[in-house]
């Protein structure tokens, strides 16, 4: 356990220094990397898998893989992007293994009702339809759509992180939009 003053100090350490310290065996340094990036990875994993407990498993396995392979992190200043790529690949592997049959009714983290039952019912129905549609997208399209639109990445950032060309990523997002539009129209009809 890190003492409070040591925890305060480690929060000011750069990512690159944390990687170097973790590589030399510092558990607190790797722990700080986990704390810094768990939210980013978890949010993506929840959106990709559709379930909180699956997302936790994916994020945990991603950090364990990262810990074992930390020496392969070529750019310690961008360790966050490297961690994200590991988690993103883990999400895609998970979805492919499950054949993208995630149920939308178990989607975690929906906001609590605000007191207007009719409005909440409408909102819930729309979100169910969106989640059903997202669950039907191929993993690569879903990943690109979520990163671009929901998580706010630029195409260049996505390209650097996923090591996929910008035109290829644009094509994935465009196809995802078309697929979502078709699916949502079908649900609404």
């Amino acid at each position: 356990m890190v003492k409070p003053d040591a925890r305060s100090d480690i929060r000011n350490v750069t990512d690159a220094d944390l990687v170097r310290e973790a590589l030399s065996g510092s558990d607190p340094a790797f722990g700080e990397l986990v704390r810094r990036y768990q939210d980013l990875l978890y949010r993506h994993a929840v959106r990709m898998t559709g379930r909180g407990d699956d997302a936790e498993d994916v994020v945990q396995s991603a950090f364990i893989k990262a810990h074992r392979n930390l020496g392969k992190c070529r750019d310690p200043d961008r360790v966050g992007a490297w961690l994200f790529r590991i988690a993103a690949n883990a999400c895609k592997d998970f979805l492919k293994a499950k054949r993208e049959t995630v149920g939308v009714e178990q989607m975690p983290g929906l906001p609590a009702p605000d007191g207007d039952p009719e409005r909440e019912a409408d909102l819930g129905r729309v979100r169910d339809e969106i989640e059903r549609a997202l669950a039907h997208l191929p993993a690569e399209q879903k990943e690109a759509f979520l990163m671009k639109h929901v998580e706010g990445w630029s195409y260049i950032e996505m390209s650097r992180t996923l090591k996929v060309s910008v035109p290829a990523l644009k094509m994935r997002v465009h196809r995802a939009r078309e697929e979502l539009q078709t699916l949502l129209q079908a649900y609404g009809s």
């Binding site: 939210d39 949010r43 959106r47 936790e56 945990q60 950090f63 364990i64 979100r127 929901v150 949502l184």
Partner: peptide, 28 residues
Amino acid sequence: LIDDIRDASPAGAPLGLDTRILAALDSA
């Protein structure tokens, strides 16, 4: 639609996830 997807997601990792990850690392 995009706002709806964003709103339907949790703000961050659940409490204690980092502890569970580090415990798993520790045991592994």
